[in-house]
Design a binder for these strands. Sequence first.
DNA 1: CGGGATCCCTTAGGATACTG
DNA 2: CAGTATCCTAAGGGATCCCG
Lengths: 213, 213
Amino acid sequence: MAARDYGQYCGVTRALELIGERWALLIVRDLLVGPRRYGELAAGLPRIPSNILAARLKELQGAGLIRRAPRSRIVIYELTPYGRELEPIVLALGAWGFKALGDPRDEQVITADSMTMALRTAFRPDVAASLPSTAYAARFGTAELFIRVDATALHVRRGDGAADLAFAAGPGIRRLISGELPAQQAITTGVVEVLSGSGRLLDRFADTFHLAA
Amino acid sequence: MAARDYGQYCGVTRALELIGERWALLIVRDLLVGPRRYGELAAGLPRIPSNILAARLKELQGAGLIRRAPRSRIVIYELTPYGRELEPIVLALGAWGFKALGDPRDEQVITADSMTMALRTAFRPDVAASLPSTAYAARFGTAELFIRVDATALHVRRGDGAADLAFAAGPGIRRLISGELPAQQAITTGVVEVLSGSGRLLDRFADTFHLAA
DNA sequence: CGGGATCCCTTAGGATACTG
DNA sequence: CAGTATCCTAAGGGATCCCG
C-alpha cells in the first residue's frame, strides 16, 4: 500500500509516500476543483495510462485522501477533509513552478482544471476587493472557463456564460499574469483576442490575477 | 534533463517535473538545513543508491535549485535562492505528513536533518516569545541535536552542548509533539529519558514545539 | 459508454562493486 | 571521499480488451 517507503520516521517522507508517486498530486490538483468521475480525471490528465490512474485512485483512497462516492449509478471521486488540506500546498507549488514555466512547447496542453487552480493561485483578493464585480468568459487553448470575481470571492466553472469581457488567449497568457506584458499590448500583439466587451477590462483581469515570474 | 514531463502547461506540473522525482525533495529538505557534502547527503539518506544521488544532484543543479560550491578542495552542495523558496512548502508538507505518521516501524530511522526540519515545522515563535531562552540537548535515536530557543528565534545544530535540559527520546516523541502525551507522563513511561536538568523543562519544550495530529 | 483490467515493452530505480 | 559502472527488478507508458 504505502508504496515504496523511504525508511525514515519523518513527516516529509511520510507525505511523499502518500502523494509522491508520479501523477498522484495532479489527481489531487484536479479533485481540488471539484468531485470528478474516472473519465473526467482521465480527460484532464491526457497522458496518464489508464492502469496508472486506477492504481493511483486506489492508493489515494487507501491513504484516506480521496473517497469513492457512488451517486445513483456512477462513481464519483472526491477529496476527504485530509486530502483537501493539501490545497495550500498545491497552490504554493503552482506559484513556485510558475516561475520556472518557460514558453510553452507544442505538445503542452492547458486543461480546465489546471487553469482553474492556476487562477486560484494567482487570485489577489485584496486587489479584487476594491474593484467592481466582474465576470469573464475565457478560453485558454481548448479550456473554456467562466470566471466571476465578486469582491474577495472567486468563482470559476467550466463552460460559458454572460460576461463583461470574453477573451481567448494562447499560453502567452503567462506573460500577462506575470506582468511582463501589459494588457493593452497583449491585445495589440494578438496574445489575447477580445471576443466581446471592452478590452479595458483586461487590465482589471491582469490586476486581479497576478503571479511573480 | 527535465525528466519525464507531464505534457501540461501548468505551474504544478512544472514544479513536479523539477522536484517530483523520487528522493529529490528529500535532498532539498536536507539542504534546507545547511550546505552539505556528497557524503553527508548520502549519510542523511541511508537508503538512497549512490547513482541515484548523483543523478538527482545533477538534475537539481540543471534545474537551478542547487549549486556546487567548490570550497578549497572539496565540493559542497547548497541551495540557490530559487531552491530555498521551497522551504515553506517542505515545512507544510512535513506538518501535513506528520498527521499520517503512525507509530514507527523498526527499520525507520531518524536523521539529524529530518529532525531539524521537523523542529522548524513544529516551532511556535509566538509561544516561545513569552518563555525564557532555553537550550536543549536532545538525542532522537542516533541523531544528536543542540537546540537553542531565543525568544522568537530557533537555532538547531548537530552535536552536543551545555543545555538547560538534556534528554533522549525514541520515536514516541511524536506523541509529545502532538500533545497526546503530557510531558511528565512521557518521562514516567520512559518515552523520554531525562539525562540532565529539570524534567519540568520538558513541558516548556512541548509548549514550544507542537504539531497537530 | 463509463470504469476499469490485461498485455507487453521501456526505463527509472535499487543493490552492489568499482575507480580516480 | 566523491562519485561511475553494471546488472537486475519493478514501476511506468501505450495499446487493447473486457465487463456491467
